[in-house]
């Protein structure tokens, strides 16, 4: 597939977007009312992710119990039918483990864990379809599900990835073809600020380009935050109107 123009001289990408355009973003909250305390569904392009949050609950084992804070456990399931070609990934896959660790660390910092000492918060994520940017879609869905569960957080974590094409052109929100061909950075931003809650880079990016990429990533993540905020407010209004009637 590498015989495609990832970014044409006319400034269009493989799928017709420009360099700074997001994939089509939709999200829903409270999708699994019965099986969880909070749930969400996020779709970024053809990447589809579902998330369920249970907790705060009594820890199942003493190992997960902390006298001062709540402990957050993230489980990530990548469905074997989610990529283009069916592929089974064992739970012990190193990349999946790494992503789970990153998510746990990120949300331990954003959730106000000291409010829930000696409890556990279990986050289950399911990747149903992949088209690039899994980690950012998962992080976005976790944010929404945590909010839906009514767990106290300092702010949103909104996430996006940004790649560098040909060592010169920054490209926002990559799909899987683009991810395969350039090195990219996944960012998680706290609310509307420019604070980084999460950052992952698996390949090399020249140091002098990093700042540009961060700037573009941050503005992209803020746009995602607005979209999630809008959906949450819509959902909130719906709740109020049903409660009132």
């Amino acid at each position: 597939m590498s015989n495609k123009e990832l970014y044409s001289p006319e400034g269009l990408r493989l799928d017709g977007r420009r360099w700074n355009e997001l994939k089509s973003f939709t999200c829903k909250v409270n999708t699994h009312q019965t099986s969880s305390d909070g749930s969400s569904y996020v779709q970024q392009g053809n990447t589809k992710v579902m998330c369920k949050v249970n907790g705060p609950l009594e820890p199942k084992s003493k190992a997960n119990s902390n006298n001062n804070n709540a402990s957050i456990t993230v489980n990530l399931n990548i469905a074997s039918f989610s990529p283009v070609e069916r592929r089974k990934r064992p739970k012990s896959d190193r990349r999946i483990k790494e992503m789970m660790t990153i998510l746990e660390k990120t949300f331990s910092e954003t959730v106000i864990t000291k409010l829930y000492p000696r409890t556990q918060i279990i986050v289950d994520c399911y990747v149903l379809s992949q088209d690039g940017g899994i980690l950012s879609a998962v992080a976005n869905s976790v944010t929404l599900a945590l909010i839906d569960a009514g767990i106290a957080m300092y702010d949103f974590v909104s996430s996006i990835n940004v790649g560098l094409y040909n060592n010169s052109i920054p490209i926002l929100d990559l799909n899987h073809l683009e991810e395969g061909d350039m090195s990219f950075l996944t960012l998680g931003i706290v609310g509307k600020s420019e604070k980084l809650a999460m950052m992952l880079l698996e390949e090399k990016i020249p140091f002098d380009k990093l700042e540009t990429l961060l700037g573009i990533g941050i503005s992209g993540a803020q746009r995602i935050k607005d979209l999630m905020d809008e959906e949450l407010r819509k959902h909130g209004k719906l709740l109020i109107s049903t409660a009132a009637s």
């Binding site: 493989l14 799928d15 017709g16 355009e21 994939k23 053809n46 283009v84 088209d131």
Partner: peptide
């Protein structure tokens, strides 16, 4: 969506990709 079927090693794979019109 752009949908096409790709054959590789004898097997057929359905490839779906987004296509933005502007």
């Amino acid at each position: 969506q752009k949908v096409f079927v790709r054959s590789r090693n004898g097997g057929a794979t359905k490839v779906v990709s987004e296509h933005y019109l502007r």
